[in-house]
Design a protein around this nucleic acid. Structure first.
Lengths: 195, 195
DNA sequence: CGATTGACTGACCGATCGGTCAACATTAAT
DNA sequence: ATTAATGTTGACCGATCGGTCAGTCAATCG
């Protein structure tokens, strides 16, 4: 297996990743991917079973990238309130630097793809546990489901980037000054869970 | 124009609406729509310019349905905090009864369709104004952008239905007991904006 | 009554889709 | 040098795509 062969298969994956994230599964043809990657369509079938399996492979890569990053999400931090604040900021910066990830998620959701749910379930379980502990210790307001909190901040941050065409009509300032936005959003969230 | 002719054009629109909301633009072929509506593909071209214009027409219908409903969103209510609570609950119930609406929005967002942003902009402006007034009157916590609040609750409620395949892996209880979910979410939000 | 109009259809078009296949090029092992 | 395995290509396939077009049918109108 020479270096060129690896490079071409890799190129196919990279271009497929960009195109799928940009236009979704159905909009992207194998001819487009082949042209963009500078290879023939046949080569795609040599390296991958079919279009579906190529999509699955690309998806796994995306999710891996996402999951790897989440390892850092709930890092060691004494104050659970501060932990939430840091995690939200960290996730916001991550998605800001990888804006195709929420788009890919959105496509997967619309196709009722359950893979994305199974992937980060363990991490969410750990985050929920931390929050529950904080609630028990009286460091956080009690009585709400921790998953609702996590879902809230993941969802809003993702959609901030996916639905820019929508929200920037509501108030352009939200995108002219992203720091102010995430600051407001984090503050609202934090205030909502203080004991 | 007899009643039958209206009925068939209407049938095309209805079926296109369901199919587009279910599978998106590219996944749905005109043959599928024609078969589902019980007409020939040619009739679609008789009533609509092309596939794109059919999509636009269907979209306008959806958005109208959405916009009409929003008239009731910020109804008269003395206490602004209570107004937010009621509005969130009202919107949740609305989307619950029209689960295809957030799916349609999601597709429009992924295609960077700006129509959806222009439609509800006036309403959001009014909602923001109400919140700003409440802030000025000391009835609501100050210093945050009202649009962030509205975007938060619209986004989460929409994604609750669109990304069920994702979040129900985090905690099935969220969907087994929707009332508990929306109750938690509303409470978190309200607590976050109390003065 | 004949003419006109709009709803509606079936046959058909070129383009493109995902996918197959035989053959050639390249590399590594024997 | 021969062989085997893999990388890579171009020609080709049936199916389906969005879209066209000539024409049928029923209702309306003068």
């Amino acid at each position: 297996m020479g270096p060129m062969s690896v490079s071409k298969k890799e190129k196919i994956l990279q271009e497929a990743l960009v195109l799928f994230a940009s236009h979704g599964f159905a909009h992207v043809s194998l001819s487009m991917i082949a042209k963009q990657a500078g290879v023939t369509k046949s080569l795609i079938f040599h390296h991958f079973e079919n279009k579906e399996q190529l999509w699955e492979t690309v998806k796994e890569r995306f999710f891996q990238q996402y999951a790897d990053n989440q390892m850092n999400l709930f890092e060691v931090e004494k104050d659970p309130i501060e932990l939430i604040r840091k995690s939200m900021l960290y996730y916001f910066e991550f998605v800001k630097n990888n804006p195709m990830i929420p788009r890919f998620f959105a496509y997967a959701h619309l196709e009722n793809d359950e893979t994305c749910g199974q992937m980060d379930q363990p991490l969410i379980a750990r985050g929920s546990e931390l929050i529950k502990q904080a609630q028990a210790d009286g460091l956080m307001r009690q009585g709400f489901n921790p998953v609702v909190l996590v879902m809230n901040f993941i969802t809003v941050i993702n959609q901030y980037f996916v639905a820019q065409c929508h929200f920037e009509h509501w108030d352009p300032a939200i995108y002219e000054n992203p720091d102010a936005f995430i600051h407001d959003f984090i503050n609202n969230t934090i205030e909502g869970i203080k004991p």
